[in-house]
Design a protein around this nucleic acid. Structure first.
Lengths: 210, 210
DNA sequence: CGAAGTTTGTAACCTTTTTCACAAATCGGA
DNA sequence: TCCGATTTGTGAAAAAGGTTACAAACTTCG
Protein backbone atom coordinates (compact mmCIF):
# COMPACT_ATOMS: atom_id res chain seq x y z
CA UNK A 1 0.00 0.00 0.00
CA UNK A 2 1.29 3.36 -1.03
CA UNK A 3 1.33 6.35 1.25
CA UNK A 4 1.79 9.00 -1.41
CA UNK A 5 -0.71 11.69 -2.17
CA UNK A 6 -3.74 10.26 -3.92
CA UNK A 7 -4.52 11.88 -7.25
CA UNK A 8 -7.98 13.06 -8.13
CA UNK A 9 -7.94 10.82 -11.19
CA UNK A 10 -7.65 7.89 -8.82
CA UNK A 11 -10.51 8.93 -6.54
CA UNK A 12 -12.69 9.67 -9.55
CA UNK A 13 -12.15 6.11 -10.70
CA UNK A 14 -13.04 4.82 -7.24
CA UNK A 15 -16.49 6.32 -7.80
CA UNK A 16 -16.76 4.36 -11.01
CA UNK A 17 -15.58 1.14 -9.39
CA UNK A 18 -18.14 1.60 -6.64
CA UNK A 19 -20.97 1.81 -9.14
CA UNK A 20 -19.73 -1.26 -10.97
CA UNK A 21 -19.45 -3.15 -7.71
CA UNK A 22 -22.96 -2.09 -6.71
CA UNK A 23 -24.25 -3.54 -9.94
CA UNK A 24 -22.49 -6.83 -9.25
CA UNK A 25 -23.80 -6.87 -5.68
CA UNK A 26 -27.35 -6.44 -6.96
CA UNK A 27 -26.81 -9.42 -9.21
CA UNK A 28 -25.68 -11.47 -6.24
CA UNK A 29 -22.02 -12.02 -7.13
CA UNK A 30 -19.86 -12.82 -4.11
CA UNK A 31 -16.39 -12.23 -5.55
CA UNK A 32 -14.94 -10.49 -8.60
CA UNK A 33 -11.46 -10.43 -10.07
CA UNK A 34 -9.97 -7.20 -11.36
CA UNK A 35 -9.78 -8.84 -14.76
CA UNK A 36 -13.48 -9.71 -14.95
CA UNK A 37 -14.41 -6.29 -13.60
CA UNK A 38 -12.25 -4.65 -16.24
CA UNK A 39 -13.60 -6.72 -19.12
CA UNK A 40 -17.18 -6.15 -18.12
CA UNK A 41 -17.01 -2.39 -17.65
CA UNK A 42 -14.36 -1.45 -20.22
CA UNK A 43 -11.69 -0.69 -17.63
CA UNK A 44 -8.05 -1.69 -17.16
CA UNK A 45 -7.43 -4.42 -14.62
CA UNK A 46 -3.96 -3.26 -13.58
CA UNK A 47 -5.29 0.22 -12.98
CA UNK A 48 -8.08 -1.09 -10.81
CA UNK A 49 -5.60 -3.02 -8.70
CA UNK A 50 -3.25 -0.06 -8.48
CA UNK A 51 -6.00 2.37 -7.52
CA UNK A 52 -7.31 0.07 -4.82
CA UNK A 53 -3.81 -0.65 -3.54
CA UNK A 54 -3.49 3.03 -2.60
CA UNK A 55 -5.90 2.39 0.24
CA UNK A 56 -5.06 -1.10 1.44
CA UNK A 57 -4.90 -4.72 0.36
CA UNK A 58 -8.52 -5.55 -0.24
CA UNK A 59 -8.07 -8.50 -2.55
CA UNK A 60 -7.18 -12.14 -2.03
CA UNK A 61 -4.73 -13.69 -4.45
CA UNK A 62 -6.22 -16.50 -6.44
CA UNK A 63 -9.73 -15.28 -5.53
CA UNK A 64 -10.18 -11.62 -6.32
CA UNK A 65 -12.19 -9.14 -4.28
CA UNK A 66 -15.17 -9.88 -2.07
CA UNK A 67 -17.92 -7.79 -3.57
CA UNK A 68 -19.68 -6.72 -0.38
CA UNK A 69 -16.47 -6.02 1.46
CA UNK A 70 -15.07 -3.98 -1.41
CA UNK A 71 -18.29 -2.01 -1.68
CA UNK A 72 -18.16 -1.16 2.03
CA UNK A 73 -14.51 -0.16 1.78
CA UNK A 74 -15.11 2.07 -1.23
CA UNK A 75 -18.04 3.76 0.45
CA UNK A 76 -15.94 4.43 3.49
CA UNK A 77 -12.96 5.73 1.49
CA UNK A 78 -15.23 8.08 -0.43
CA UNK A 79 -16.81 9.28 2.80
CA UNK A 80 -20.28 8.18 1.72
CA UNK A 81 -21.02 7.11 5.29
CA UNK A 82 -20.99 10.75 6.41
CA UNK A 83 -23.86 13.10 5.63
CA UNK A 84 -23.42 16.61 4.29
CA UNK A 85 -25.69 19.62 4.18
CA UNK A 86 -25.73 21.54 0.93
CA UNK A 87 -26.65 25.12 0.09
CA UNK A 88 -27.30 26.05 -3.52
CA UNK A 89 -26.54 29.66 -4.36
CA UNK A 90 -28.58 30.85 -7.32
CA UNK A 91 -32.26 29.91 -7.57
CA UNK A 92 -32.38 30.16 -11.35
CA UNK A 93 -33.12 27.31 -13.72
CA UNK A 94 -29.97 25.40 -12.93
CA UNK A 95 -30.23 25.92 -9.18
CA UNK A 96 -33.81 24.72 -9.08
CA UNK A 97 -33.07 21.72 -11.30
CA UNK A 98 -30.21 20.75 -9.01
CA UNK A 99 -32.35 21.17 -5.90
CA UNK A 100 -34.29 18.05 -6.64
CA UNK A 101 -31.64 16.36 -8.77
CA UNK A 102 -31.85 12.79 -7.63
CA UNK A 103 -28.09 12.49 -7.61
CA UNK A 104 -28.25 14.70 -4.54
CA UNK A 105 -31.36 13.22 -2.98
CA UNK A 106 -30.02 9.69 -3.48
CA UNK A 107 -26.62 10.37 -2.02
CA UNK A 108 -25.19 11.53 1.28
CA UNK A 109 -25.84 15.15 0.31
CA UNK A 110 -28.98 16.95 1.50
CA UNK A 111 -29.97 20.22 -0.12
CA UNK A 112 -31.19 22.27 2.84
CA UNK A 113 -31.21 25.86 1.57
CA UNK A 114 -31.28 27.98 -1.57
CA UNK A 115 -29.94 31.52 -1.79
CA UNK A 116 -30.59 34.29 -4.26
CA UNK A 117 -30.52 38.06 -4.46
CA UNK A 118 -33.80 38.40 -6.40
CA UNK A 119 -36.48 39.76 -4.04
CA UNK A 120 -39.20 37.89 -5.94
CA UNK A 121 -37.56 34.57 -5.17
CA UNK A 122 -36.54 35.16 -1.56
CA UNK A 123 -39.11 33.68 0.81
CA UNK A 124 -40.43 31.23 -1.78
CA UNK A 125 -39.94 27.48 -1.64
CA UNK A 126 -38.47 25.26 -4.37
CA UNK A 127 -39.86 21.85 -3.58
CA UNK A 128 -39.35 21.65 0.17
CA UNK A 129 -36.40 24.02 0.27
CA UNK A 130 -36.59 27.67 1.35
CA UNK A 131 -35.02 30.44 -0.68
CA UNK A 132 -33.10 32.92 1.48
CA UNK A 133 -31.40 36.20 0.75
CA UNK A 134 -27.71 35.63 0.01
CA UNK A 135 -27.00 38.40 2.53
CA UNK A 136 -28.09 35.97 5.22
CA UNK A 137 -25.77 33.21 4.03
CA UNK A 138 -23.45 33.31 7.03
CA UNK A 139 -26.25 33.23 9.56
CA UNK A 140 -28.20 30.41 7.90
CA UNK A 141 -25.08 28.40 7.11
CA UNK A 142 -24.08 28.36 10.75
CA UNK A 143 -27.62 27.71 11.96
CA UNK A 144 -28.21 24.81 9.56
CA UNK A 145 -24.64 23.51 9.73
CA UNK A 146 -24.13 23.75 5.97
CA UNK A 147 -20.78 22.34 4.86
CA UNK A 148 -21.10 22.25 1.07
CA UNK A 149 -21.95 25.10 -1.30
CA UNK A 150 -23.08 24.81 -4.92
CA UNK A 151 -22.52 27.88 -7.07
CA UNK A 152 -25.25 28.21 -9.71
CA UNK A 153 -25.05 31.93 -10.43
CA UNK A 154 -24.00 33.70 -13.63
CA UNK A 155 -20.26 33.65 -14.26
CA UNK A 156 -19.52 37.28 -13.31
CA UNK A 157 -20.84 36.72 -9.77
CA UNK A 158 -19.23 33.36 -9.14
CA UNK A 159 -15.93 34.57 -7.67
CA UNK A 160 -17.74 36.88 -5.23
CA UNK A 161 -19.96 34.03 -4.09
CA UNK A 162 -16.96 31.74 -3.66
CA UNK A 163 -15.14 34.35 -1.58
CA UNK A 164 -18.20 34.89 0.58
CA UNK A 165 -18.92 31.22 1.30
CA UNK A 166 -15.21 30.63 1.98
CA UNK A 167 -15.25 33.43 4.53
CA UNK A 168 -18.03 31.63 6.37
CA UNK A 169 -15.84 28.54 6.59
CA UNK A 170 -17.31 26.32 3.86
CA UNK A 171 -14.55 23.97 2.69
CA UNK A 172 -16.19 22.17 -0.25
CA UNK A 173 -17.66 23.99 -3.22
CA UNK A 174 -19.10 22.80 -6.49
CA UNK A 175 -19.14 25.43 -9.21
CA UNK A 176 -21.37 25.37 -12.28
CA UNK A 177 -20.45 28.84 -13.50
CA UNK A 178 -18.35 28.56 -16.66
CA UNK A 179 -15.39 30.55 -15.39
CA UNK A 180 -12.11 29.71 -13.69
CA UNK A 181 -12.25 30.58 -10.00
CA UNK A 182 -9.51 31.11 -7.45
CA UNK A 183 -10.12 29.30 -4.17
CA UNK A 184 -8.22 29.51 -0.89
CA UNK A 185 -5.75 26.69 -0.36
CA UNK A 186 -7.87 24.79 2.12
CA UNK A 187 -11.06 24.96 0.06
CA UNK A 188 -11.87 22.12 -2.35
CA UNK A 189 -13.36 23.57 -5.50
CA UNK A 190 -14.85 21.33 -8.16
CA UNK A 191 -15.94 23.08 -11.32
CA UNK A 192 -18.43 21.43 -13.67
CA UNK A 193 -18.21 23.33 -16.90
CA UNK A 194 -20.80 22.34 -19.47
CA UNK A 195 -19.55 25.00 -21.86
CA UNK A 196 -16.21 23.25 -22.14
CA UNK A 197 -17.91 19.93 -22.82
CA UNK A 198 -20.08 21.48 -25.50
CA UNK A 199 -17.17 23.22 -27.14
CA UNK A 200 -15.28 19.96 -27.07
CA UNK A 201 -18.03 18.41 -29.18
CA UNK A 202 -18.03 21.48 -31.38
CA UNK A 203 -14.29 21.12 -31.96
CA UNK A 204 -14.67 17.46 -32.80
CA UNK A 205 -17.42 18.14 -35.32
CA UNK A 206 -15.33 20.88 -36.91
CA UNK A 207 -12.47 18.51 -37.73
CA UNK A 208 -12.26 17.74 -41.46
CA UNK A 209 -12.32 13.98 -40.82
CA UNK A 210 -15.92 14.14 -39.56
CA UNK B 1 3.54 24.92 -35.08
CA UNK B 2 3.12 21.26 -34.25
CA UNK B 3 1.25 18.85 -36.44
CA UNK B 4 0.78 16.11 -33.83
CA UNK B 5 -2.57 14.96 -32.59
CA UNK B 6 -4.16 17.57 -30.34
CA UNK B 7 -5.06 16.31 -26.88
CA UNK B 8 -8.45 16.94 -25.37
CA UNK B 9 -6.78 18.65 -22.41
CA UNK B 10 -5.48 21.21 -24.88
CA UNK B 11 -8.82 21.88 -26.57
CA UNK B 12 -10.54 22.12 -23.20
CA UNK B 13 -8.11 24.84 -22.26
CA UNK B 14 -8.80 26.64 -25.53
CA UNK B 15 -12.38 27.02 -24.34
CA UNK B 16 -11.10 28.62 -21.17
CA UNK B 17 -8.75 30.92 -23.05
CA UNK B 18 -11.60 32.00 -25.27
CA UNK B 19 -13.70 33.05 -22.31
CA UNK B 20 -10.81 34.96 -20.78
CA UNK B 21 -10.14 36.68 -24.08
CA UNK B 22 -13.80 37.58 -24.41
CA UNK B 23 -13.65 39.25 -21.03
CA UNK B 24 -10.60 41.26 -22.08
CA UNK B 25 -12.26 42.20 -25.36
CA UNK B 26 -15.30 43.53 -23.47
CA UNK B 27 -12.96 45.65 -21.39
CA UNK B 28 -11.44 47.06 -24.56
CA UNK B 29 -7.91 45.65 -24.32
CA UNK B 30 -6.18 45.50 -27.68
CA UNK B 31 -3.30 43.15 -26.87
CA UNK B 32 -2.46 40.70 -24.10
CA UNK B 33 0.71 38.80 -23.26
CA UNK B 34 0.55 35.16 -22.21
CA UNK B 35 2.08 36.22 -18.92
CA UNK B 36 -0.58 38.79 -18.10
CA UNK B 37 -3.33 36.43 -19.21
CA UNK B 38 -1.91 33.72 -16.97
CA UNK B 39 -1.55 35.98 -13.96
CA UNK B 40 -5.03 37.37 -14.29
CA UNK B 41 -6.87 34.08 -14.75
CA UNK B 42 -4.66 31.76 -12.68
CA UNK B 43 -3.22 29.94 -15.65
CA UNK B 44 0.30 29.01 -16.76
CA UNK B 45 1.83 31.24 -19.42
CA UNK B 46 4.02 28.58 -21.02
CA UNK B 47 1.04 26.30 -21.33
CA UNK B 48 -1.02 29.01 -22.99
CA UNK B 49 1.72 29.61 -25.55
CA UNK B 50 2.20 25.92 -26.16
CA UNK B 51 -1.52 25.23 -26.56
CA UNK B 52 -1.92 28.09 -29.01
CA UNK B 53 1.20 27.06 -30.90
CA UNK B 54 -0.52 23.80 -31.83
CA UNK B 55 -2.74 25.75 -34.20
CA UNK B 56 -0.45 28.43 -35.58
CA UNK B 57 1.68 31.40 -34.62
CA UNK B 58 -0.87 33.88 -33.38
CA UNK B 59 1.39 36.01 -31.24
CA UNK B 60 3.89 38.76 -31.96
CA UNK B 61 7.15 38.66 -30.04
CA UNK B 62 7.63 41.67 -27.86
CA UNK B 63 3.90 42.47 -28.11
CA UNK B 64 1.79 39.45 -27.18
CA UNK B 65 -1.51 38.49 -28.81
CA UNK B 66 -4.00 40.79 -30.48
CA UNK B 67 -7.17 40.22 -28.47
CA UNK B 68 -9.71 40.40 -31.28
CA UNK B 69 -7.64 38.35 -33.65
CA UNK B 70 -7.03 35.67 -31.05
CA UNK B 71 -10.71 35.55 -30.19
CA UNK B 72 -11.62 35.02 -33.84
CA UNK B 73 -9.00 32.32 -34.22
CA UNK B 74 -10.15 30.45 -31.11
CA UNK B 75 -13.76 30.58 -32.21
CA UNK B 76 -12.81 29.18 -35.55
CA UNK B 77 -10.60 26.43 -34.10
CA UNK B 78 -13.39 25.36 -31.75
CA UNK B 79 -15.86 25.33 -34.62
CA UNK B 80 -18.10 27.91 -32.98
CA UNK B 81 -18.82 29.42 -36.37
CA UNK B 82 -20.77 26.31 -37.38
CA UNK B 83 -24.26 25.64 -36.04
CA UNK B 84 -25.45 22.30 -34.67
CA UNK B 85 -28.86 20.82 -34.05
CA UNK B 86 -29.29 19.00 -30.76
CA UNK B 87 -31.73 16.31 -29.63
CA UNK B 88 -32.14 15.64 -25.92
CA UNK B 89 -33.16 12.10 -25.09
CA UNK B 90 -35.00 11.93 -21.78
CA UNK B 91 -37.61 14.57 -20.93
CA UNK B 92 -37.20 14.23 -17.16
CA UNK B 93 -36.01 16.95 -14.84
CA UNK B 94 -32.50 17.05 -16.22
CA UNK B 95 -33.61 16.93 -19.84
CA UNK B 96 -36.06 19.77 -19.38
CA UNK B 97 -33.55 21.87 -17.44
CA UNK B 98 -31.03 21.38 -20.24
CA UNK B 99 -33.57 22.28 -22.91
CA UNK B 100 -33.51 25.90 -21.96
CA UNK B 101 -30.06 25.91 -20.41
CA UNK B 102 -28.62 29.15 -21.63
CA UNK B 103 -25.28 27.49 -22.32
CA UNK B 104 -27.09 25.85 -25.22
CA UNK B 105 -29.25 28.76 -26.24
CA UNK B 106 -26.26 31.13 -26.14
CA UNK B 107 -23.94 28.94 -28.14
CA UNK B 108 -23.88 27.42 -31.59
CA UNK B 109 -26.09 24.54 -30.38
CA UNK B 110 -29.85 24.63 -30.94
CA UNK B 111 -32.06 22.20 -29.06
CA UNK B 112 -34.63 21.20 -31.68
CA UNK B 113 -36.22 18.04 -30.27
CA UNK B 114 -36.82 16.07 -27.09
CA UNK B 115 -37.40 12.33 -26.95
CA UNK B 116 -38.94 10.11 -24.29
CA UNK B 117 -40.74 6.80 -23.96
CA UNK B 118 -43.35 8.05 -21.47
CA UNK B 119 -46.70 8.34 -23.29
CA UNK B 120 -47.75 11.22 -21.02
CA UNK B 121 -44.83 13.31 -22.20
CA UNK B 122 -44.87 12.48 -25.92
CA UNK B 123 -46.70 15.16 -27.87
CA UNK B 124 -46.17 17.80 -25.19
CA UNK B 125 -43.91 20.82 -25.54
CA UNK B 126 -41.10 21.85 -23.19
CA UNK B 127 -40.70 25.54 -23.86
CA UNK B 128 -40.80 25.67 -27.64
CA UNK B 129 -39.49 22.15 -28.17
CA UNK B 130 -41.66 19.13 -29.07
CA UNK B 131 -41.36 15.84 -27.22
CA UNK B 132 -41.33 12.86 -29.58
CA UNK B 133 -41.41 9.12 -29.02
CA UNK B 134 -37.88 7.74 -28.95
CA UNK B 135 -39.07 5.13 -31.42
CA UNK B 136 -39.22 7.91 -33.99
CA UNK B 137 -35.70 9.08 -33.34
CA UNK B 138 -34.25 7.99 -36.66
CA UNK B 139 -37.03 9.58 -38.67
CA UNK B 140 -37.01 12.91 -36.83
CA UNK B 141 -33.21 13.04 -36.67
CA UNK B 142 -32.96 12.79 -40.43
CA UNK B 143 -35.85 15.18 -41.03
CA UNK B 144 -34.49 17.85 -38.68
CA UNK B 145 -30.83 17.20 -39.51
CA UNK B 146 -29.90 16.55 -35.92
CA UNK B 147 -26.15 16.04 -35.46
CA UNK B 148 -25.74 16.07 -31.66
CA UNK B 149 -27.49 13.91 -29.07
CA UNK B 150 -27.70 14.54 -25.33
CA UNK B 151 -28.40 11.49 -23.18
CA UNK B 152 -30.44 12.43 -20.11
CA UNK B 153 -32.03 9.08 -19.29
CA UNK B 154 -31.50 6.86 -16.22
CA UNK B 155 -28.18 5.00 -16.23
CA UNK B 156 -29.55 1.54 -17.15
CA UNK B 157 -30.97 2.87 -20.44
CA UNK B 158 -28.02 5.01 -21.47
CA UNK B 159 -26.07 2.38 -23.43
CA UNK B 160 -29.16 1.42 -25.42
CA UNK B 161 -29.80 5.04 -26.30
CA UNK B 162 -26.19 5.54 -27.33
CA UNK B 163 -26.30 2.47 -29.58
CA UNK B 164 -29.53 3.66 -31.16
CA UNK B 165 -28.42 7.24 -31.88
CA UNK B 166 -25.09 5.92 -33.22
CA UNK B 167 -26.94 3.65 -35.61
CA UNK B 168 -28.72 6.68 -37.03
CA UNK B 169 -25.36 8.30 -37.74
CA UNK B 170 -25.03 10.80 -34.89
CA UNK B 171 -21.31 11.39 -34.33
CA UNK B 172 -21.31 13.62 -31.22
CA UNK B 173 -22.98 12.62 -27.97
CA UNK B 174 -23.05 14.19 -24.55
CA UNK B 175 -23.96 11.80 -21.76
CA UNK B 176 -25.30 12.81 -18.35
CA UNK B 177 -26.07 9.29 -17.14
CA UNK B 178 -23.64 8.31 -14.38
CA UNK B 179 -22.33 5.20 -16.06
CA UNK B 180 -19.41 4.35 -18.33
CA UNK B 181 -20.58 3.85 -21.91
CA UNK B 182 -18.95 2.14 -24.86
CA UNK B 183 -19.08 4.18 -28.06
CA UNK B 184 -18.13 3.24 -31.60
CA UNK B 185 -14.71 4.44 -32.69
CA UNK B 186 -15.96 7.28 -34.85
CA UNK B 187 -18.41 8.65 -32.27
CA UNK B 188 -17.28 11.39 -29.90
CA UNK B 189 -18.75 10.70 -26.47
CA UNK B 190 -18.44 13.25 -23.69
CA UNK B 191 -19.73 12.13 -20.30
CA UNK B 192 -20.61 14.65 -17.62
CA UNK B 193 -20.86 12.73 -14.39
CA UNK B 194 -22.14 14.78 -11.47
CA UNK B 195 -22.02 11.77 -9.19
CA UNK B 196 -18.26 11.58 -9.56
CA UNK B 197 -17.91 15.29 -8.82
CA UNK B 198 -20.07 14.96 -5.72
CA UNK B 199 -18.18 11.95 -4.47
CA UNK B 200 -14.96 13.81 -5.06
CA UNK B 201 -16.14 16.46 -2.61
CA UNK B 202 -17.29 13.74 -0.26
CA UNK B 203 -13.84 12.15 -0.36
CA UNK B 204 -12.18 15.47 0.34
CA UNK B 205 -14.41 16.18 3.31
CA UNK B 206 -13.73 12.71 4.69
CA UNK B 207 -9.96 13.32 4.85
CA UNK B 208 -8.72 13.76 8.44
CA UNK B 209 -7.01 17.04 7.60
CA UNK B 210 -10.35 18.75 6.98
C1' DC C 1 0.24 -32.98 0.35
C1' DG C 2 1.80 -31.23 -4.17
C1' DA C 3 0.95 -29.51 -8.70
C1' DA C 4 -1.69 -26.74 -11.70
C1' DG C 5 -4.35 -22.77 -12.14
C1' DT C 6 -5.79 -18.02 -10.48
C1' DT C 7 -5.20 -13.54 -9.16
C1' DT C 8 -3.22 -9.92 -6.43
C1' DG C 9 0.19 -6.19 -5.51
C1' DT C 10 3.92 -3.80 -7.33
C1' DA C 11 8.42 -2.74 -9.63
C1' DA C 12 9.95 -1.39 -13.96
C1' DC C 13 8.91 0.61 -18.07
C1' DC C 14 6.59 3.56 -21.22
C1' DT C 15 3.60 7.52 -22.48
C1' DT C 16 1.58 11.85 -21.81
C1' DT C 17 1.43 16.27 -19.79
C1' DT C 18 3.44 20.13 -17.57
C1' DT C 19 7.07 23.23 -16.54
C1' DC C 20 11.46 25.41 -17.38
C1' DA C 21 14.56 28.06 -19.83
C1' DC C 22 16.30 30.52 -23.62
C1' DA C 23 17.24 31.85 -28.59
C1' DA C 24 14.85 34.58 -31.86
C1' DA C 25 11.82 38.25 -32.97
C1' DT C 26 9.76 42.62 -32.24
C1' DC C 27 9.10 47.26 -30.20
C1' DG C 28 10.29 51.92 -28.54
C1' DG C 29 13.30 55.46 -27.42
C1' DA C 30 17.66 57.87 -27.93
C1' DT D 1 20.24 52.84 -36.48
C1' DC D 2 21.35 50.62 -32.32
C1' DC D 3 20.27 49.08 -27.56
C1' DG D 4 17.54 47.57 -23.87
C1' DA D 5 13.11 45.75 -22.72
C1' DT D 6 9.48 42.44 -23.93
C1' DT D 7 7.49 38.39 -25.27
C1' DT D 8 6.86 34.53 -28.29
C1' DG D 9 7.69 29.68 -29.78
C1' DT D 10 9.92 25.59 -28.65
C1' DG D 11 13.48 22.12 -27.29
C1' DA D 12 14.73 19.82 -23.14
C1' DA D 13 13.82 18.41 -18.39
C1' DA D 14 10.66 17.09 -14.97
C1' DA D 15 6.45 15.32 -13.26
C1' DA D 16 2.40 12.70 -13.60
C1' DG D 17 -0.14 8.97 -15.25
C1' DG D 18 -0.81 4.39 -17.40
C1' DT D 19 0.68 -0.38 -18.83
C1' DT D 20 3.33 -4.53 -18.69
C1' DA D 21 5.03 -8.28 -16.54
C1' DC D 22 5.91 -11.25 -12.87
C1' DA D 23 6.90 -13.02 -8.05
C1' DA D 24 4.10 -14.15 -4.23
C1' DA D 25 -0.07 -15.83 -2.31
C1' DC D 26 -4.03 -18.28 -2.47
C1' DT D 27 -7.48 -22.15 -4.18
C1' DT D 28 -8.77 -26.41 -6.08
C1' DC D 29 -8.27 -30.96 -7.42
C1' DG D 30 -6.23 -35.41 -7.59
Amino acid sequence: MKVEKISELTTNRLSIYLRCINELAREGDKTISSDKLAKRFHLNSAQIRKDLACFGEFGVRGVGYYVEELRDQLQKILGLDKNHRVAIIGAGRLGTALTDYYGFTQSNFDVVALFDTDKDKIGEKIGKVDVFSFGEFGKIARRDEIDVAVIAVPAPFAQGVLDEVSKVGIKAVMNFAPTPLKAAGDVKLKTVDLTISLESLSYFLAQPSN
